[in-house]
């Protein structure tokens, strides 16, 4: 009896687009529904185009010759697709500034991501499972730092790095990103680790695991999903950063975003560098986005307060 009732209530809200009630509804209301359903589709398709066209424009612009770009809009390629060329990309990859800066982007992003994950996990585990005086106050302090704007630290850290010789170095850029990545990392991981069932940790402890082994063999593997979200979020954050690197890197250590930014001032004359450059800088983030959609979404959703 109860099963019947529940299946009924489940069935009731199900009918989509009013199929269940169609018999009772007038022809007019069904017609109106069909029309509005069509309008919804048209609206969403138009919006989707609005969202796609700018990126497509960049891609097609990067595949045209500078002469074509100076003469006409990128949509003209549809009338003469044979004029598309990878020439701009070939030129770009011969440009030492660009290739060096691409390498720099990797050299900055990978360590900044790994360090945040490792250091954040250590602290997150300590906040979740260790006992020490004022633990929760310390943790709340870290949470308070979540929304501190990076702008507050630009001038002080520039002076600090200048004094200790880190200004203009890749290490300086990495350190800054780690510092501002940590509050979110600690916050996310502490909350995730705190949900690990106590019995699991106790069992490992009884098997004679020390604190470090417990952390490496039990906590880290169990924290996989949170660590993945954090890692992806931090990776994209650092990869896409321009402001921090603009201030703390120099011409030898600058990532791709800064290298391209210096070109923007002559916008129009050097679209053959900017368009393929911007597209190359987008390839990795887009690949990450399509490969790890779920972790990406949860990471962005949890971390957007930054």
């Amino acid at each position: 009896m109860t099963a019947d009732a529940s299946s009924l209530t489940k069935a009731a809200p199900e009918p989509r687009a009013g199929t269940a009630g169609a018999g009772r509804r007038s022809l007019g209301s069904r017609l109106a529904e069909g029309v509005s359903g069509g309008l919804v589709r048209v609206f969403l398709i138009v919006v989707g185009l609005f969202w796609l066209v700018p990126t497509i424009g960049l891609l097609l612009s990067s595949l045209r010759t500078p002469e074509d770009m100076a003469a006409s809009g990128w949509w003209k390629v549809f009338t003469e697709p044979s004029r598309l060329t990878f020439g701009a990309y070939e030129e770009l990859l011969k440009n030492d500034d660009i290739t060096t800066s691409l390498v720099n982007t990797v050299l900055i992003t990978v360590p900044a991501t790994v360090l945040v994950v490792v250091i954040g996990s250590l602290a997150g585990y300590a906040f979740a499972w260790m006992e020490f005086p004022g633990r929760d106050w310390w943790f709340l302090g870290v949470v308070g730092l979540l929304v501190v704007p990076v702008q507050v630290a630009l001038i002080p850290i520039a002076e600090l790095f200048g004094e200790i010789g880190l200004f203009g170095s890749i290490l300086g850029v990495i350190l800054f990103h780690v510092g501002f990545g940590l509050p979110f990392a600690v916050f996310l991981l502490r909350n995730f680790f705190a949900e690990i069932p106590r019995e699991l940790l106790e069992a490992a402890r009884l098997d004679g695991a020390g604190e470090l082994r417990l952390f490496a063999r039990v906590v880290m593997p169990l924290g996989g999903p949170a660590i993945a979200s954090l890692g992806i979020f931090q990776f994209l954050w650092v990869w896409n950063d321009m402001l921090v690197a603009l201030i703390f890197s120099d011409s030898g250590s600058q990532p791709i975003t800064v290298a391209l930014q210096t070109q923007v001032r002559q916008f129009g004359n050097n679209i053959d560098v900017l368009a393929p450059g911007a597209f190359i800088s987008m390839v990795i983030p887009l690949a990450v986005f399509f490969a790890f959609q779920r972790q990406f979404v949860s990471g962005v959703m949890a971390g957007a307060v930054k």
Partner: peptide, 18 residues
Amino acid sequence: VFMPMAISMLAAGIIFRL
């Protein structure tokens, strides 16, 4: 619609300059 979240503001900036 969510895709632009993945790219840098620099890339988005260049896209919109165009």
